[in-house]
Design a protein around this nucleic acid. Structure first.
Lengths: 358, 358
DNA sequence: CTGTTAGCGCATTCAC
DNA sequence: GTGAATGCGCTAACAG
């Protein structure tokens, strides 16, 4: 075998002394082949180091067994975990993953979607970026697609996300139960459903407790570190700064921590901090970080499963579950505490770790 | 346009009133087509929402414009940054990325490699896991392949990695210059080239300074958090515990921090800690973490570029650069300090941030 | 059970 | 410049 010689089914058939169709049959176990011939074919395949050409097979069958995954930023620690879940589920089902990073850019996203379409992937998983509209072209083509995490309001079906309203609610409840009344939130970007939803949950919790929401306590300028720094500084300069801050994203969190550090503000003595998405390092911060966690791996798995259903459904068939919504889980650590000067925190002791079911 | 209707070049040709070959020519700008006909073809393509079938094209041309990327663990924060570099470089060159996660499992890696081969990707980027041998099958097939980060000793060409010997040396030098003499290292896994190389650099620096290396100061049991916890506990239980610890991996670091925390050992007053690979959160730890950083994005870009060369070289042609080695950069923060009881640290003040060139 | 045959959609000779 | 014909490697429908 000298190197990368191309061998086709013809070669295998010839060497095994059978027809091409027989080779195809043993590869796909699509028809019954006598075990004697089967052995001969397998021996020939091994001898020639033959591997079926998936490209040719795809052209013939019209399926590639590849899905496209378009995410806004793989260096955002949230997505690798989702991708892992997708990849695992896909692999178990015989699919490969074409990974595309849109860099939070709508034009790039459009290009990727178009490229994936041309490559004839069987379906697409999309976490869309702000101002994205590329997907409706795909939807109009009846292209199998599922939205993950970042879900457009217009999606009639095929969405998988954490219940972010619940997540925002759970985080805010925790702070309220600790006795906080002046609670701020670094929202992130209102054009992105997770952020928008978390704010909604926050509002809901505040209203339920008849707590005022000061507009100057809300910041929705973006999801980068820089936004966190600026928003943090602004909050600390307020005449009546908040006693607790909820941050809807880890990058914003880093910015906030930096701003807090500049002013030598102590967590949690002077201000409590709670963040979304639980990363492994959160528990190694000091103080360790209270967060509202998502099951990122499950998010990935479920989104593949839903896509799989869509890819394989019969024409016009309805989905058993059009929208998958996963529970969020509050993880209490030491970055949240009763507000300064607050009396005993007995009533504030939370009863359960998970508020998802409330 | 009712949905996902299949349109081929035939349809476009018919609508434009030209032949199939003409359509192909305008798509590939492979031949001169009169501008009048060109416009007609383009209009027809737009009207039919036609997108060339890359599968068919690949079958015909023998190239897929897809590369495979096999990494051991996408949830290891190191790899997403590498993948980002790869993806950017690939996209700029018109390639897509098929992402495979081997879960640090040699058998899984083998399956992925085999699958990628069948899918006729044009080349593969591989960060191999321990005990991996699957790649030599690919190499024997003369399959274009480049090793990234984790490089087998046997690779005759096509490797891209950080100079980890230098990295280990730089980290150890920093500790030595601070005045440390009892220095430990959580090595990770000796079957993985980055870890092995960092240990070598560590040894080199110690020997240069005539400092002894106590075998009980070295731990090479694995790269998981658990290994870090156990190794950390062992070190602290020693009669003469180290005054500085070098950790070759972020997961080991988390484990070590946990062990230190259990014993209420203060960083850097009682023990200095230095880690490899600089992640965004490292500077937000308290104390902020001194690390030896790699240029992960560049690692990705360069590995794609090298693969690109290999994929496109003429038969037997030699590579301009067979092995790419990138410099590491020491980033000094507050987790490293002179050892307890050490006199003024004037001599210990490091002169430059980057020791890469030393 | 096995072999023959006709395309899948496209790029690419070759005649015109 | 343009168009008709051939085949990339495979599957599936059919004939033996």
């Amino acid at each position: 075998m000298e190197g990368r010689t191309k061998h086709t089914m013809r070669d295998v058939a010839r060497l095994a002394g059978v027809s091409i169709a027989t080779v195809s049959a043993v590869i796909n176990s699509s028809a019954n082949v006598s075990s004697e011939r089967k052995v001969r074919v397998e021996a020939a395949m091994a001898a020639l180091d033959y591997h079926p050409d998936e490209v040719a097979r795809s052209l013939k069958t019209g399926r590639t067994n590849v899905i496209g995954v378009v995410i806004p930023d793989i260096t955002n620690a949230f997505y690798p975990e989702v991708v892992r879940g997708i990849e695992e589920a896909a692999r178990e089902t015989g699919y490969s993953v074409l990974l595309c990073d849109s860099s939070e850019d709508a034009a790039e996203e459009r290009n990727h979607l178009s490229s994936l379409f041309s490559r004839r992937v069987d379906g697409v998983l999309l976490a869309c970026c702000a101002n994205s509209t590329a997907y409706d072209t795909m939807l109009r083509r009846r292209f199998p697609m599922v939205f993950v995490d970042r879900v457009p309001a217009s999606a009639a079906e095929g969405t998988v996300s954490t219940d972010n309203i619940q997540a925002g609610y759970a985080g805010a409840r925790h702070l309220i139960e600790l006795g906080h009344k002046r609670i701020a939130m670094l929202v992130g970007h209102l054009g992105l459903s997770p952020h928008r939803d978390r704010l909604e949950g926050f509002r809901k919790a505040m209203q339920e407790s008849h707590l005022p929401i000061h507009e100057e306590y809300l910041s929705c300028n973006g999801i980068a570190i820089e936004n966190g720094i600026l928003a943090g500084r602004d909050l600390l300069n307020l005449a009546a700064p908040p006693t607790a801050i909820m941050v809807s994203n880890s990058k914003l969190l880093f910015g906030l921590i930096q701003a807090l550090d500049e002013k030598k503000v102590n967590i949690p003595d002077q201000v409590s901090v709670i963040s979304f998405d639980d990363y492994i390092w959160n528990r190694y911060f000091s103080p360790s970080l209270t967060t509202v966690a998502q099951d990122t791996n499950e998010l990935g798995r479920r989104s593949f499963q839903l896509l799989f259903e869509i890819m394989n459904r019969r024409d016009g068939e309805e989905l058993a579950e059009k929208h998958v919504r996963l529970p969020a889980e509050l993880r209490i650590r030491t970055s949240t505490a009763p507000p300064p000067g607050h009396a005993a925190s007995l009533t504030a002791k939370p009863a359960a770790m998970s508020l998802a079911a409330s």
